[in-house]
């Protein structure tokens, strides 16, 4: 293994061309390999609904769907999304109307400051859309990787229950 060059002495970045489908729209871009997917979404595509908290995979605020599966966009590079489909919280409301889950979050007071909400919604959306029956324990398990520091989890579980049953 060669001795690593200190980062500040490394050659200037080589941009990589990517084609990423985001919320059903195809985006072509040149990205620096070290650009995180969350930062690409927020700063380059200007979709600021995806929130960034810890930037180390712990809080879940940055959760998006990657080929329909929830992942943390802070532990993925934008280059890795080349040729893949990403869905962010902006995809949920259609024709000005909230999705069933979003409406339930509003109705059941499942958000206070709203910081964790995009991550919660993107984690739960595939479960709600799949139409499966989930126990409260399974809902809690599903959001176990999403931290909420102000609302408390009970209303979030209630809202999910409401969306699943309603």
């Amino acid at each position: 293994m060669g001795c690593a060059k200190p980062p500040n002495e490394r050659e200037s970045k080589i941009m990589v061309k990517v084609t990423i489908e985001i919320n059903d729209v195809v985006h072509d871009a040149d990205v620096d390999p070290r650009l995180l997917l969350c930062d690409f979404l927020r700063h380059d595509v200007r979709l600021t609904g995806t929130h960034v908290g810890c930037e180390q995979g712990s809080c879940g605020a940055c959760t998006v769907l990657f080929d329909e599966l929830p992942v943390r966009s802070c532990t993925m590079l934008a280059v890795q999304a080349d040729g893949h489909a990403v869905r962010t919280v902006e995809s949920l409301a259609r024709d000005g109307g909230l999705s069933k889950l979003q409406q339930s979050f509003t109705d059941c007071h499942a958000l206070q400051c709203g910081f964790c909400t995009p991550g919660m919604l993107m984690t739960l959306t595939p479960l709600v859309e799949s139409g499966q029956r989930l126990s409260d324990a399974e809902i809690r398990e599903a959001i176990s990787g999403n931290l909420c520091r102000c609302t408390g989890y009970q209303q979030i579980v209630d809202a999910t229950r409401h969306a699943l049953d309603g």
Partner: peptide, 28 residues
């Protein structure tokens, strides 16, 4: 072996380490 390389698999340990600058490979 002229480059300090790291394999990137799921990235669930490596990317957090890189975000924290605890790892800084030259090539992924």
């Amino acid at each position: 072996d002229t480059v300090d390389s790291k394999v990137l698999a799921g990235g669930q340990s490596l990317i957090p380490l890189m975000n924290l600058r605890l790892a800084a490979p030259e090539r992924l």
